[in-house]
Write a protein that binds this DNA or RNA. Sequence first.
DNA 1: TAGATTCGTGTAACCCGTTACATATATCCT
DNA 2: AGGATATATGTAACGGGTTACACGAATCTA
Lengths: 331, 331
Amino acid sequence: MTTIRDVAEYAQVSVATVSRVLNKKGYVQSATKEKVEKAINDLDYKPNDVARSLFKGKSKMIALLVPDITNPFFPELARAVEDLCNQNSYTFILCNTDNSYEKEATYLNSLQQKSIDGMIIVSDTISPDYIGKIKVPIVLLDRVFEKGDYSYVKVNNREGACNATNYLKEIGCKKIAHIAGPSSVLNAKDRMKGYIDAVAYESWFSNDLIITSDYDMKLQASTENIKALLQKHPDVDGIFAANDSIAIRTMKVAEEMKIKIPDDLSIIGFDGISLGEITSPSLTTMAQPIYEMGRKAASMIMDEINDPSLPKRMEKLEVNFMKRQSTRKKG
Amino acid sequence: MTTIRDVAEYAQVSVATVSRVLNKKGYVQSATKEKVEKAINDLDYKPNDVARSLFKGKSKMIALLVPDITNPFFPELARAVEDLCNQNSYTFILCNTDNSYEKEATYLNSLQQKSIDGMIIVSDTISPDYIGKIKVPIVLLDRVFEKGDYSYVKVNNREGACNATNYLKEIGCKKIAHIAGPSSVLNAKDRMKGYIDAVAYESWFSNDLIITSDYDMKLQASTENIKALLQKHPDVDGIFAANDSIAIRTMKVAEEMKIKIPDDLSIIGFDGISLGEITSPSLTTMAQPIYEMGRKAASMIMDEINDPSLPKRMEKLEVNFMKRQSTRKKG
DNA sequence: TAGATTCGTGTAACCCGTTACATATATCCT
DNA sequence: AGGATATATGTAACGGGTTACACGAATCTA
């Protein structure tokens, strides 16, 4: 490995001068500059970022912690963050936490030991206290705590859920069920509230129109619950699913039960993952601006890195209704 | 930040002794060890990995370069690599190259400047010459060059494709088309060869039963080609698609054309992405052991990092036939 | 018991950029 | 002309672990 000292020697100048040329900082005579640039070229010198990081205490690295990248919501988010990292010369680190407290704690420690510059965290398990101890800039994404002073990016889950449910009412659904996400997931609660906002005063509403499912598409455990719901309430003609994965699984179950979508049953999801476009029928959904959320979080982190005294920012983005084939107006 | 010198002072020993305790290396009296451990605890000392990396020239970081994490093939791969990184205390870096030569070159440079320990690369654009210049251990994944001495992990694309096509013949398909991947993608060529292996001597075979499409599911450009194929050859009753994304898109097109799957047309894909399970009908496919491929690549990289003198390893894994609903036996 | 080993610990150089500070010359201002 | 300022470059300390080497004490060997 060629070092800055090799370059200095080759160019017959001091290391300080080479450093000045490299960083375009301080005074360097143009003739000297050329000598140094020639040396850099001749020796194919690339500065060692680790040494740089050690001195600066910054690593030009940003980490994204998600529960599981194979969950179809996260690749687009990761892509957004990575794009911004790449554009701003940051290196992008990805961590799968499986919503495990231990894994999160391990990651948080090892990332700090690597002088990570900032972290974007999607987590239901992490506690505000724990986050408070971390000196590195943090932006919470999608799932946030109620209290505490943290930067975050999220969407208006409750209103979005309410609107989604109202849409089913508008197209003439007479009995609307809700398949909620796990109670441990923060945004799932808000979405359930939004559903209740929309149906609480309907004469047909009863609590057993709400069942709970897992957010993960692969787990087939809750398929039975969905089936039971549809059997118990054969007159349900609209379902608001807490996310697209659940909605897609529900479509599968309905199909097996010979329930026609959207003719017999309208289904609306939440998230706007690209999967929803390729199912048959394609999925009507309340889409989160996933890429934009990732972009914004990354951009906020970088702002905070550049100026740690910046006040925390809370960004609430709007969901977008996407009409597709899994819902249809009655009559 | 507490440093090793703070710990040394607090424990009344030298930094060397603290380092020995930390790394469990060299002689330390048990009483001294306890003193040091107490100091580490009292001061909540965490060693600085950057300083460590600088001295060692190793960073305990591994990078995965993929074209695009939002392509559904890659999240599972990334997850596998990340899992192994996590288990072995490596930090996982993810890079989206978009198959752009410039982006790849930029990543390769900046990763080396960060003393990355190893890279796993999925790329069609990268050249063997370029790779040859890199001193860091590299494992190529899924797409590999014909010549040169590189470690890689791939599947038997050609045989798998041939078997997939033969399966269509076995269930009674009388005319089988192939929707190939872009010619720039290395594995797409092999899969096309496999298809040809299976059909070259069939009386019905003609070159215009092969069309080319994009691997990416989102691009709708090639939808027209698929439609044209099905219109031109209404007697095609079997399609082998070069990957699952194409197969799923083909199912969509067929559905729009009122062609029933699998009754009128059997479709088989390649890859085994989890998406294929949730479509209606679900997709019969030649599944690659995606997680296993990622695992193996990660494990090979770590072996090479631990012993750079190790010979290159070429791993060819087997694809697995997954019978689902998009194919059906005739008659 | 002398000499060789093993054990235990410390000093200081090293990894490689960055930059504060020192020094020196050139340019500017009154 | 003489002090202030801008320009140009070098020296050496620094960031925080790691480890080669040195030294002393304890244990072993013959």
